[in-house]
Design a protein around this nucleic acid. Structure first.
Lengths: 198, 198
DNA sequence: GACGATTTAGGACAAATGTCCTATTCATTG
DNA sequence: CAATGAATAGGACATTTGTCCTAAATCGTC
């Protein structure tokens, strides 16, 4: 029975609003109103807006760590695990169509703001990059695991971006299908295919 | 001997600043200071900030139209033309590393702002989509030309996004190489390969 | 029930923003 | 030169922003 603290509420709502409206376009007042607390109370929990962003990024990092940990625990083949990553595009398809990828759009926004927390946002990319890398190593592709991970990350980002711009479900489905095929092809290439974890 | 009007200066500087700092994060004062005109003078040329954005989008549209028109005029094969599109990633590599893709990041920002000019920004995507489509048709791939165009657009966007996040030149080069190979493979597939324009 | 610490409400504050107005300067034309 | 319209400067204006302060309320503990 975990109690929901005001701080948690703030971070949760900020997470959502930063995603849907952007970081800069979300004000203290927006978040306070959404929760139903006073603007002043805010300052007790977070001294600056940047502090909130940091907490939001930590939250997202934890979320994603939990997600890949769950995938790892599922004891499937690395190929299937990679496909679970790809399938995020379909599972979260509606939100992606409306708001893009939460990781990519945040990274892009902070880059333009030249924001001190850029590195934090990019750590989200790094998390998936490292995890995907492990999966490709497990597929026996240790030589270019880094590149394959980045490649898949980039393709996912591109699909999210165009899905957002064009509002196109069919395009997402088709790209996901293609990427599944690509993963299978990568898996078939070398002889190895070990299933051990990183 | 084209005289450079104040209006042109405003649009040119706004174009650059919207790209480098984002639309919302660029103020009237920023643009005015960069040019050296008073903030008040601004209102004479543009009634609202949205009007400036519209002019910037028109400018970008014209720029890109001129670019593809030049490519079309070069009388090369569609395969080479498509590669010229891909090579934007290298030609503009430095800026892309710093600020991402000007089209993708604008589209993404306006989507989050739910801005009335979203359609304008997406027209930039549409321009390239249509042009790429023509090239794939010329390659004899009329059946899936739409999809191939969107696919390549998405891949480029993904590369730009990751290049921006990771500041990685080598990744750009490798992806561009891969895409060149992909285009060649697409060209080799069917027998046709007409070279006529759309 | 009383006390101390935690949490909250409400508002103050300066700075910045988009918008808008007016007076002045500049350039063109008769 | 005179006069008309275009272009510019400077600033007013209300609003919103992030930040910060203080007093009130709430809670746990003795």
């Amino acid at each position: 029975m975990k109690e929901v603290t005001t701080r948690d509420q703030i971070v949760a709502v900020a997470d959502q609003m930063f995603y849907q409206q952007g970081y800069e376009n979300t004000s203290f007042a927006d978040i306070a109103n959404a929760i139903g607390i006073s603007r002043g109370n805010f300052y007790y929990h977070f001294k600056t807006k940047d502090d909130i962003l940091e907490a939001v990024i930590d939250r997202r990092l934890q979320d994603r760590k939990d997600m890949v940990a769950q995938w790892d625990a599922d004891e499937e083949s690395p190929e299937i695990r990679i496909c679970k990553f790809i399938d995020i595009l379909i599972v979260n398809g509606e939100k992606i169509k409306k708001f893009g990828c939460p990781i990519g759009t945040l990274s892009s926004e902070l880059a333009k703001l030249n924001h001190p927390n850029q590195d934090g946002a990019n750590a989200l990319f790094g998390l998936f990059q490292a995890w995907l890398r492990c999966q490709f190593v497990a597929l026996g592709r240790e030589d270019d695991a880094d590149y394959l991970a980045a490649h898949l990350l980039a393709r996912s980002q591109g699909v999210a971006m165009l899905a957002n711009a064009f509002q196109d479900d069919e395009f997402i489905r088709r790209e996901v299908e293609q990427m599944h095929g690509w993963v299978a092809a990568q898996a078939a290439l070398p002889g190895r295919g070990a299933t051990g974890n990183c």
